[in-house]
C-alpha cells in the first residue's frame, strides 16, 4: 500500500504523519501511541467509541479517513480537558463510568450535546447519546451526570 503524508492540527499542535489512504482517523491517532483516549470497538460506525472532534464536530473516527483530516482541526479528549472538566468530574461523582472504555467518546458527545442543547431534558440526553454505546452502566448514571452538568452550567442548583 502506498503511503501519503497527512498534516492536521491535533489538539492545537500542527502535526504530520505518513498514512495509507485506507487508514481511518482513529487508527492513525491510535498509532501515535500518546492518545490513549482514542479507541475502537465496532469499526462499523455504530458504537461511537471512536468519536473525536473534527473542526468542532464530533465524528466517528472509524468512518473518517485520516487523509480526510488534512488541514483540519482534530481534537481528542486529551485536547479537550478544559471544556469537559466539569462533565468529567460529574461522571466520577455519579459513577457514570465503569470500565471507562466508552467514556472519552461519551464525554465528547455529551459536551457537544450540551453546547447545542443546554436545556436538554433527560429524554433529549438519552436521544443525544444514543449513538454512543456503553455496555457497562445501563446509561442511567450517564444521563444523571449529563443532566447535573447541564444544571450546573446554567448556574442552577445541584440536583
Amino acid at each position: 500500500m502506498t503511503e501519503t503524508t497527512v498534516s492536521m492540527t491535533l489538539n492545537g499542535t500542527r502535526i504530520e504523519g505518513r498514512v495509507e489512504a485506507r487508514t481511518h482517523l482513529a487508527d492513525f491517532l491510535r498509532s501515535r501511541g500518546d492518545l490513549p483516549s482514542v479507541r475502537v470497538s465496532c469499526e462499523y460506525g455504530v458504537c461511537g467509541c471512536c468519536s473525536v472532534v473534527l473542526d468542532g464536530k464530533v465524528v466517528r473516527g472509524c468512518l473518517t479517513l485520516a487523509v480526510q483530516a488534512q488541514d483540519r482541526d482534530v481534537r481528542t479528549l486529551e485536547g479537550s480537558t478544559a471544556e469537559t472538566e466539569d462533565l468529567r468530574s460529574a461522571f466520577v461523582e455519579r459513577n457514570a463510568l465503569q470500565c471507562g472504555y466508552c467514556t472519552p467518546a461519551m464525554l465528547l458527545t455529551a459536551h457537544e450535546l450540551l453546547q447545542t442543547k443546554p436545556d436538554a431534558t433527560r429524554e433529549e440526553i438519552r436521544d443525544g447519546l444514543s449513538g454512543n454505546y456503553c455496555r457497562c452502566t445501563g446509561y442511567h448514571a450517564i444521563v444523571d451526570a449529563v443532566a447535573a452538568t447541564a444544571e450546573r452550567r446554567k448556574g442552577g442548583v445541584d440536583r
Binding site: P36, R88, V92
Partner: peptide, 14 residues
C-alpha cells in the same frame, strides 16, 4: 467515588 475513575475518565486507561 472510585479512586480509579479519575484515571479512567481522563481517557488515560491502558
Amino acid at each position: 467515588p472510585r479512586p480509579n475513575a479519575e484515571r479512567l475518565s481522563r481517557g488515560a486507561a491502558r
